[in-house]
Simulated assay, not measured.
Amino acid sequence: MREVIFDTETTGLDPKTGDRMVEIGCVEMIGRVETGRTFHAYFNPERDMPIEAERVHGLSAAFLATKPRFAETVDELLDFLGDAPLVAHNAGFDFGFLNNELQLIGREAIAMERMVDTVAIARKKHPGSKLSLDALCTRYGIDRSHRVKHGALLDAELLAQVYVELTGGRQIGLGLVGDDAGAGPDSNVTTFTPNAPWHRPSGDRPRREPRPHVASAEELERHKAFIAGIDNAIWTR
């Protein structure tokens, strides 16, 4: 199953008060394994950058002023997203900003049914624990030493590793899961793929004659002689 893990950076916390999305980073996964395909873009928000937000992600208004507007990149972004489930950390926040940008240019919003929230998964798996991306990276031993500031693509790449751990660990990438298995974020189902070599129809495999596993008369006599030569055996007492 194809999934897209994504993260956004913004000018603030609420698109309803005029905050805008300024960066998006996406990572493609198939069968919970990263394919190497990513999408990354900065956007000119056509507004100022509050200093509080700049301290988080380091993106200044001057830097973003040279970047394309969201409308200029939207088709490429939507092509990458396709119809895959979209995985994000505190996903309601990222969906809110992404759909706000789509609404501002008259495009259809992305259905909330596609949303997979890793915070909700982590809360169910680790109740009472810290659920930030940093905390989950620490819990699962994921190296985040290069995360000096927030960055959409970097955070999406870290989240992809966290998502694997939250949904079963790295063994899920061993080719034992079929296309329809483990579709839900809480699924622990593991099935064999129909075309795996151990699950092919018998007509597709070379036939081998069964190997003999019964001792021959000569082997039985040799064993009997060996047993008779053991001094003070417990079975003779």
Rank of each mutant, 00 (worst) to 15 (best):
H213V: 09
L102W: 08
P206H: 09
D180A: 10
F192R: 12
F93Q: 12
K124E: 11
G96T: 07
G58P: 10
V214H: 04
A215H: 01
G141S: 05
H146I: 12
V116E: 10
K125N: 07
T236S: 13
F95W: 09
N195K: 08
T11S: 04
V162Q: 01
R139F: 11
H146T: 09
V56F: 05
M21P: 06
I110D: 00
L59M: 14
E54A: 06
N44F: 09
D14Y: 01
E219Y: 06
D134Q: 09
N188P: 00
C26L: 07
T73H: 15
H126Q: 10
V148E: 13
V189A: 04
G92T: 14
M21D: 09
F97V: 01
A233L: 02
H146A: 14
A62D: 10
D7L: 00
D143E: 07
E72I: 02
T167I: 00
V214Y: 11
R114A: 10
V162E: 01
L13I: 13
S145R: 08
F226C: 04
E157G: 05
V27C: 01
G169I: 08
R37D: 10
M1D: 09
R32F: 08
R200P: 01
F39T: 00
T236G: 02
T8P: 06
L78E: 03
G128Y: 02
G184K: 03
G178R: 02
I30T: 03
I227F: 12
G229A: 09
I230G: 08
R55H: 01
L131V: 15
G128W: 01
A61F: 03
P212L: 08
D75C: 10
T191R: 05
I234A: 13
K130M: 03
F95D: 00
G128S: 00
H126A: 10
V87Q: 13
A88G: 13
M112I: 03
